[in-house]
Simulated scan of single mutants.
Amino acid sequence: MPKGYIIGHITVNDPEAYKEYVAKDTPLLMGLGGRFLVRGGQAEVVEGAAEDRHIVFEFDSFEAAKAAYHDPDYQEVAKIRHASASSTIMVAEGNDEDLPDPAGGTPLGYLIAHVTVHDPEAYRPYVTGNTPIMRGYGARYVVRGGQAEVLEGDLGGRHVVIAYPSFEAARAAYHDPAYQEVAAIRRDFSEGTIILVEGAA
């Protein structure tokens, strides 16, 4: 069964109050079966605009991820986040690929994309053309297609999370000239945000 993910992008407006949220949400979500793939860490918004902090929380299924977000205890704690930060939050069904082995024990790197496709037929060559390039850098597709539901804020209609053996591998894959050539198709027929982010240690 594919895993499920809570994906969040957050800008903290009140750091002291937000610390209380982190202290309460972490044990709660972990107690509901979640584990952090991405939490803080270095990040680079390479296309579009995004919040300052990025999280990816993995659960055993899409239903488990949704249930964790909607859990009454979590919703009570989320009130602290709502008061101290601006957020976009979604749940997404996983692609069921194993994560890559970290390079030398370093944290994994991730590419997180939220895009709205304007011409699906013209966009298709991008989908088929980018995959072999990404795979050459050790990519595994964590989220690609599948069910998705935006719970807070505004995100595009297509969501992708790609894991790499390291943050440096994620950056190298994105900046590869061959990928940038294929990415021109995506830019012509979609709009959105792409973030490179370091995984949780």
Results as ranks from 00 to 15, higher is better:
D96A: 10
V150F: 09
L155A: 14
Q147L: 12
D101C: 02
I7N: 06
D119Q: 13
R81V: 03
A169S: 14
V45Y: 11
E47Q: 14
G157A: 10
G41N: 08
Q147F: 10
G156L: 09
V115N: 13
L155P: 07
L108S: 10
A92M: 01
M1Q: 07
E47Y: 01
H175Y: 15
P177I: 04
G34Q: 09
E16D: 15
S166W: 08
D52S: 15
H159T: 09
E191N: 13
L32H: 10
F167S: 08
P107M: 05
A201T: 12
S87F: 00
E97D: 14
E168D: 15
V143H: 05
I89W: 05
F167C: 08
G48E: 01
E149N: 04
P15D: 11
L196F: 02
V38H: 07
H9V: 00
Y5P: 04
H159M: 03
D154I: 12
G41K: 11
V127G: 05
V46A: 13
P120Q: 13
L196C: 00
Y174R: 01
E93K: 11
G146M: 00
Q147Y: 06
R35N: 13
E44A: 06
A183V: 02
G34W: 04
F57I: 15
H114C: 06
M134Y: 10
V45R: 01
H175L: 11
Y141Q: 12
V56G: 06
P120Y: 10
R158N: 13
A184R: 14
A173M: 02
A170I: 03
A65S: 10
G105N: 09
L108A: 06
S84A: 15
A173Y: 08
R135D: 12
Y69T: 05
M134H: 10
L32C: 11
R35E: 15
E44V: 10
G199I: 07
M134Q: 12
G34P: 04
Y110I: 12
A184F: 02
H159D: 05
M30I: 13
V22R: 11
A78G: 06
D101S: 15
G48T: 06
G136I: 02
G153N: 11
S87T: 13
D176W: 04
E93G: 04
E191I: 02
Y164K: 07
E191T: 15
V45E: 00
G33V: 13
L28D: 02
L29W: 07
